[in-house]
Nucleic acid binder design. Structure first.
Length: 324
DNA sequence: AAGAGCTTCAACCGCTCTCAA
DNA sequence: CTTGAGAGCGGTTGAAGCTCT
């Protein structure tokens, strides 16, 4: 009956992941694909629960992740999607390629909430706070500045609403919830929209200005546009992955079943992930060779190097330790 | 220079939903 | 149909880094 337990928690490691653990997880997933998280720790030789592995991979190690602070347009999308969907971070994340629900949630809690509050907007309801007019009168310049930094998206609201209407067909179980959200939101817009009409004009922003970026189109300049404070060592942790410009990929379970275990720790190039394993590894090689000064027992890869891609690597990153 | 307070974000916890047995 | 594990989600925590005094 039922399935086997995910993991017995006895003897499992917790807390921050070490470079060695990252290495094992990446190696395993590159070789075997992303499937059956319950089995991953055991097969990868990790003393972690499958859940922890999944979280680490999806939030931190996935090569298609964008790192760094959310751009202004991404922030705008998040605010607007939050107005529509509430704290459904995973759903919001699906509209922001390369961003994780955790990242968006963190950004919301640390940055956007504050901005909205300063603007006199309740971050929960997206309605003006009771003392909004007071605040506007007290600090009109500051308010205007914030508004320019963070305009809301009336046009986007309408388009996204349409999207949801279409999705209602496909997502039957959510239909009633979703529609009630939309109904609520429509009512909110009646209140909010007039407040931000001027913002819309000021910024001229609309959905058309925020094309959905495919993972393979994600390009992050080496000289990050983020402010120095925005690029903490941790937030750069897999910046090198950004440079890979990997194509979109999906690893099927079929594939995994065929090659799991038998191929593990063997030649990754024998499988159908060649196309990006090569890129991935050559970039890693580049990364490691860029940093070979410390001579920390790093191994070079066979893949050819592209010195055009040279970049900085944060010393504190697991990647800088030479994962493979 | 050093300590206190604040901020950020990776990771954990516990819950719900889904689906295999 | 029932049971229970897997997967995923959102809230919360706590360590590390940063800023201020």
């Amino acid at each position: 009956m039922g399935r086997q337990p995910c993991c017995d928690k006895v003897g499992l490691r917790k807390g921050p992941w070490s470079a060695e653990e990252d290495k094992k997880l990446i190696n395993f997933i590159l070789t075997n694909g992303q499937c059956c998280w319950r089995a991953v720790p055991k097969l990868a030789g990790l003393l972690r629960c499958g859940k922890s592995c999944r979280l680490r991979w999806t939030n931190y190690l996935r090569p298609d992740l964008k790192r760094g602070l959310l751009s202004e347009s991404e922030e705008k999308m998040v605010i607007d999607l939050h107005a529509q969907l509430g704290n459904r971070w995973s759903k919001i994340a699906t509209h922001l390629p390369g961003r994780t629900d955790n990242e968006i949630k963190n950004h919301w809690n640390t940055h956007i909430k504050k901005k909205l509050k300063k603007m006199g907007i309740d971050p929960v309801t997206h309605k003006p706070l009771p003392n909004v007019t007071e605040q506007t009168q007290i600090q009109p310049k500051e308010q205007q500045q914030l508004v320019e930094e963070q305009p809301l998206l009336v046009d986007f609201d309408l388009k996204f609403e349409h999207e949801i209407d279409q999705n209602k067909e496909a997502e039957k179980p959510e239909t009633s919830i979703e529609s009630s959200i939309i109904t609520e939101t429509k009512e909110e817009e009646k209140i909010i929209t007039p407040l931000f009409d001027t913002m819309e004009v000021m910024d001229g922003f609309c959905t058309e200005d925020v094309p959905i970026i495919e993972p393979d189109e994600i390009l992050v300049p080496c000289a990050s546009s983020s402010s120095p404070t925005s690029t903490s060592s941790s937030s750069n942790s897999n910046n090198f992955l950004e440079d890979l410009q990997l194509p979109d990929f999906e690893w099927s379970c079929d594939y995994t079943e065929n090659c799991i275990i038998s191929n593990y720790n063997e030649d990754a190039n024998n499988n159908n992930m060649d196309f990006w394993v090569d890129d991935f590894i050559s970039s890693l090689d580049l990364l490691i060779n860029d940093d070979e000064g410390d001579g920390n027992g790093k191994q070079a890869f066979d893949a050819p190097l592209s010195k055009n891609n040279s970049r900085m690597v944060m010393d504190s990153e697991p990647w800088a330790y030479g994962l493979f």
